[in-house]
Structure formats: structure tokens, C-alpha cells
């Protein structure tokens, strides 16, 4: 199953290669990885999505925490989170064929951020399925997708909510996350928190 590791790391040269080396060594493919500055000076937050069994995910989280540059690690697993990804999509479009794309952009609550003679650029945020959806609809309507750049998933745990709210959100999340809601091996815990 896919696991989501959120790591707070030092913002120093070589930290990304230390983190990625760990996945390479375990022969685990990184599905997506996004890095950017965090709220703490001198630190970055990484969101790493990788395919791993529950046992392997414990090892990944524990091994990540062993890296000197990693301040905290969390396998957010089944917790209530907000997942978002940003995509820029360049589509071939002339002034004559633009208008239906405007309609699609409206439906997906995306924005046009660049308009040229032979192409336009769409900015879209949302969960992966929404981005995949727009790309698919564009292709189905005969528009040539010239270029796609995606940030990869960013994940943040939700704040404290009542149990009923959380339950409802879990149901909603299950629909839009790409992971399979598979069962866990041998009742292994899926949450591994390594915070200081």
C-alpha cells in the first residue's frame, strides 16, 4: 500500500540525497516527493509517498529518523489529512479552439495563467484524482496536452476535530486518495511518529 511520510528536515546541502538514498537502498520506489521551506527557520518539510508494506513502512520511518538531518518523521497513514497537489498544464489551443477549454477550466475550478497564440497554460490545485481528471478530459476532447508539471502530493494532518467530523472526513478522503484501502498486515500499527 502507499504510505505517506511527512518529514521535517534540516535545510542543508545533501539532505535530499540522504533521504532518497534510504529509499533506494531498501529498493522502494518513491511515488512522489515534494520539498519546501517549513514554518521553522532553517528547516524544510518533505512529503514522501512510497509503496511499502506496513512492516517496511515502520522501518522506513525509523530509518529516516536515524538520519542526523531529520528532525521529525511521521507516517500519516490513516490519519485525517488534507492532501493537495499543484499542477501546471500546457495545452495546444488556438484562438478558435480555446473557448471549450475555458469551460472545462471553470468546471474544475482551475485558472488560466498564460495565454499564447498556439497554447495556453492551466493552473490547478487539488487531490491527484482531480488533476488526472482534467488531463483525461482534455485528451478526450481532442486537445493536445503539451506539457505537465506537478508538485507531487503535499500532506498535512488536520487539526483537532470531534470524532463524528473525523469519521465523515475519513469517508471523504477514502474516495479521493489513490491508495487502496487495503487491510493491514498482522495488526501492525500504521502510525509511526518520530517527533521531538
Amino acid at each position: 500500500m502507499l504510505h505517506t511520510f511527512v518529514a521535517l528536515v534540516e535545510d542543508k546541502p545533501g539532505v535530499l540525497s540522504r533521504v532518497s538514498l534510504l529509499f533506494r537502498r531498501l529498493n522502494v520506489n518513491i511515488y512522489s516527493l515534494s520539498v519546501g521551506r517549513s514554518e521553522r527557520v532553517g528547516t524544510s518539510r518533505m512529503t514522501i509517498i512510497a509503496e511499502a508494506s506496513a512492516t517496511a513502512s515502520h522501518r522506513i520511518a525509523a530509518s529516516l529518523y536515524k538520519l542526523e538531518n531529520v528532525i521529525s518523521v511521521e507516517d500519516v497513514g490513516e490519519q485525517a489529512t488534507v492532501n493537495r497537489e499543484l499542477a501546471l498544464i500546457k495545452v495546444a489551443a488556438t484562438p478558435q479552439t480555446r473557448s471549450h477549454i475555458f469551460e472545462l477550466v471553470e468546471v474544475f475550478r482551475a485558472r488560466i495563467v498564460d495565454l499564447a497564440k498556439e497554447s495556453l497554460m492551466i493552473e490547478l490545485t487539488g487531490v491527484e484524482s482531480k488533476i488526472e481528471g482534467l488531463i483525461q478530459v482534455l485528451e478526450e476532447s481532442g486537445d493536445e496536452v503539451l506539457e505537465v508539471a506537478r508538485t507531487g502530493r503535499m500532506v498535512m494532518r488536520r487539526g483537532k476535530h470531534g470524532s463524528r467530523v473525523l469519521g465523515a472526513m475519513r469517508l471523504a478522503d477514502a474516495g479521493d486518495a489513490p491508495r487502496e484501502p487495503g487491510t493491514l498486515d498482522e495488526g501492525e500499527p500504521t502510525e509511526h511518529r518520530f517527533n521531538d
Binding site: 522501518r59 525509523a62 530509518s63 536515524k66
Partner: peptide, 11 residues
């Protein structure tokens, strides 16, 4: 002492 060793080979 190393949490990464727990359940690595033997549960």
C-alpha cells in the same frame, strides 16, 4: 537501542 531493528527480521 535502534528502533529500526525492531521487527526487521524477527517479530
Amino acid at each position: 537501542i535502534d528502533p529500526a531493528e525492531i521487527n526487521k527480521n524477527v517479530k
